[in-house]
């Protein structure tokens, strides 16, 4: 009788734990589907990456399509090179696409916004390992203020 009670209670214990795990999996965490599974890599050079971090999202029109895999400094030109890991689901961006470093909200995190460019016959599609040449760097508040004051002074 006592053995059965122990079995029952341990059974309940394990079930509660599994329920907690399912709750965490379904309701709380994302499975980071955009970086799961097959991915391909693009590179983008910026003048300034601002507050971009490894694992920051890469978005196209607000949809997360990938993540920043690494950020390094080009040895020759001392430019930051950002490695983007993009889901295979979202491939076929034209080489005229633009990568910008944007900020979600006033205090939000920074992310890479990818804007697909125009497509034409003599335009290639970005493949694994290609580099995006059209980039907009992060806005740096001090530079903005500087520009603003400068333009005021010219009037």
């Amino acid at each position: 009788m006592e053995a059965r009670k122990i079995e029952l209670m341990v059974g309940i214990f394990i079930s509660v734990a599994i329920a907690a795990l399912v709750f965490l999996a379904m309701q709380v965490a994302n499975q980071s589907s955009s970086t799961r599974g097959e991915t391909y890599t693009l590179y983008a050079k910026f003048d300034n990456i601002g507050g971009l971090k490894v694992r920051s999202p890469v978005k196209v029109g607000g949809v997360v399509v990938g993540r920043v895999a690494s950020i390094t400094l080009d040895k020759e030109f001392f430019e930051p090179v950002v490695e983007l890991r993009i889901s295979k689901e979202y491939s076929g961006f034209p080489e005229t696409s633009t990568a910008s470093i944007l900020t979600s909200g006033l205090l939000g995190e920074q992310y890479v916004g990818l804007e697909p460019g125009f497509m034409d016959d003599d335009i290639f599609v970005l493949e694994n390992g290609d580099t995006i040449y059209h980039t907009n760097s992060a806005m740096v508040l001090e530079n903005l203020i500087g520009q603003f004051l400068f333009s005021q002074g010219n009037d």
Binding site: A25, Q27, V28, A29, N30, S32, R55
Partner: peptide, 15 residues
């Protein structure tokens, strides 16, 4: 509450 949570909690990294 839930969607922002889901957007920033990652299964592998956090859980």
């Amino acid at each position: 509450f839930w969607s922002v949570m889901q957007a920033s909690v990652e299964w592998r990294h956090d859980v």
